[in-house]
Simulated assay, not measured.
Amino acid sequence: MQKFSFNDKSLTLPDSAFELVEHLGFNSVKQAQWAWFELSGAVLSHYLADEAQRLQALLRFFYEERGFQADEQYFSIAAADLGMCFMQRRGNSTTLATALMLLARQLDLHMELLLLPGTTVIACSLAGEFRYIDPLTGRFLTRHDLHALVKGELGNAAPFKARYLKPGCNKLILMRMMSELKAACVLAHEFEAALECCNLMLDWYPDELNLHRERAFIAHQLGAIQVATADLQFFIDNNPHDPMVELVKMQLRELGEESQTFH
C-alpha cells in the first residue's frame, strides 16, 4: 500500500473522506464525487425562506425522497464509507450524519456533529437554539435522549459530560470514520486495510496507547511479529498500572514464543 497522509490544514469534507477510502482500496473518489454532486445540486430546490421550514424540507428530502437510512450491515465497510453512503443511501450514524450536515450547508443551515461514545448525532442551530437529530432516523432528540445513548454505550452509571456537546472538527470526524473503518475491516478480515487505518491514526496521535494495542493485534494477524511486539511493549512501558497490562504482558510472551518457533 502506497504512503498516504493527511495535511491537517487541508482537511475537507467530503473530499478527504473520499480520498481515504480510495487509498484503502474500497471505492473510487470520482464515483463518490459524482454521487455527492448530484445530491448537493438536487437539494437546492428545497431552499425555503423560512429557516424552520427549510430544515423540515431537508429532512424530508434526505429520509423520504432519497431514502437515506441505517445500513442493515451496520458494522460493514460500506456503512462506514461516506462515498458509499451517498451512492447507496445507506450508512452508519457517522456517515449519515456527515452526509446530512454537508447537505445542510447547501441550504445555509448550521449543523455540526456530536461524537458521542459509540454513536454520532447532529446538533442543529435554529433560531438561536440547538436541536439534536438522530441521523439514523431524522428524529429529534432531547438532552435526556443523548444521555440515554451514552448510558447504552458506557453503562447506566455513566455521566453526561459537557465535552459530549462540543462539535467535532473535520479532523475528529475523520478520526471517527477511520476508527469505524478499522473495526469494519477487522470484521471483514481486511487486515492490511485495518493496519493502514491504525497507521494513519497514529500519525496524528502517536501516543494513543489503545491504538498501539489494537495495531499489535492486527499486525499479528498479518504475521508482522516485530511490529506487534513493539506496540505491546510500548503499551506496557507507557501504561504500567493499566488493569489490562498483565494480559498484554502475557500476549507479549506468547508473541516471543511464536517468533522463536517461526525462526
Rank of each mutant, 00 (worst) to 15 (best):
Thr120Lys: 01
Met84Glu: 12
Arg66Pro: 02
Leu59Lys: 03
Ala42Gln: 14
Ser5Val: 14
Leu232Arg: 06
Val21Lys: 02
Ala49Ile: 10
Thr229Ala: 11
Gln226Tyr: 08
Thr98Leu: 08
Cys124Met: 12
Gln73Pro: 02
Ala148Tyr: 02
Ile77Ala: 00
Met244Arg: 12
Val150Ser: 00
Leu255Met: 09
Pro206Glu: 00
Asp237Phe: 01
Met87Tyr: 11
Asp145Trp: 11
Leu44Met: 14
Tyr132Arg: 06
Ala127Leu: 08
His23Met: 01
Glu258Arg: 07
Arg143Thr: 15
Lys182Trp: 02
Ala97Asn: 04
Leu13Gln: 08
Glu192His: 15
Phe235Tyr: 15
Arg215Ile: 02
Glu192Pro: 01
Glu51Lys: 15
Ala148Met: 10
Ala230Gln: 07
Asn92Pro: 06
Ala57His: 11
Arg131Phe: 14
Ala228Leu: 03
Lys166Cys: 10
Leu100Asp: 08
Met250Ser: 12
Pro159Trp: 14
Ala79Cys: 06
Gly256Met: 11
Leu58Tyr: 09
Leu39Asp: 09
Tyr74Ser: 07
Ala184His: 03
Leu222Phe: 04
Ser16Ala: 13
Lys249Met: 12
Ala184Gly: 03
Ile218Thr: 01
Thr12Phe: 07
Leu113Ala: 02
Ala79Val: 08
Asn199Trp: 09
Ala97Met: 11
Glu208Cys: 05
Asp231Leu: 02
Lys9Cys: 08
Leu187Ala: 09
Pro14Lys: 03
Glu153Thr: 12
Phe62Gln: 08
Ala78Asp: 04
Asp231His: 05
Leu48Trp: 04
Asp50Ala: 10
Arg90Gln: 05
Gln56Arg: 14
Leu165Ile: 14
Glu51Ser: 13
Glu19His: 12
Glu51Arg: 15
Glu190Val: 01
His220Ala: 07
Gly118Thr: 00
Glu112Trp: 07
Cys124Gln: 09
Glu208His: 12
Glu258Ser: 10
Thr261Met: 10
Phe217His: 13
Arg253Thr: 05
Met111Tyr: 07
Ala148Glu: 09
Glu22Gln: 15
Glu129Tyr: 03
Asn199Glu: 15
Gln53Arg: 12
Val245Tyr: 07
Leu58Val: 08
Ala35Thr: 13
Asp8Gln: 14
Leu20Gly: 05
Ile236Lys: 01
Phe6Tyr: 15
Ala78Leu: 05
Gly155Phe: 13
Glu246Thr: 07
Met177Gln: 13
Glu72Gly: 08
Lys166Tyr: 13
Gln69Glu: 10
His189Cys: 07
Val150Arg: 01
Val248Tyr: 07
Leu103Ser: 07
Cys85Asn: 04
Cys124Glu: 12
Arg89Tyr: 05
Ser40Met: 08
Gln88Phe: 08
Phe75Ile: 00
Ala97Tyr: 06
Gly25Ile: 06
Ala80Gly: 01
Glu129His: 09
Tyr164Arg: 13
Ala49His: 13
Asp15Glu: 15
Trp204Ala: 10
Ala99Met: 07
Leu59Val: 02
Gln106Val: 04
Leu113Lys: 03
Glu19Gly: 02
Ala123Ser: 13
Ser125Ile: 10
Phe217Arg: 03
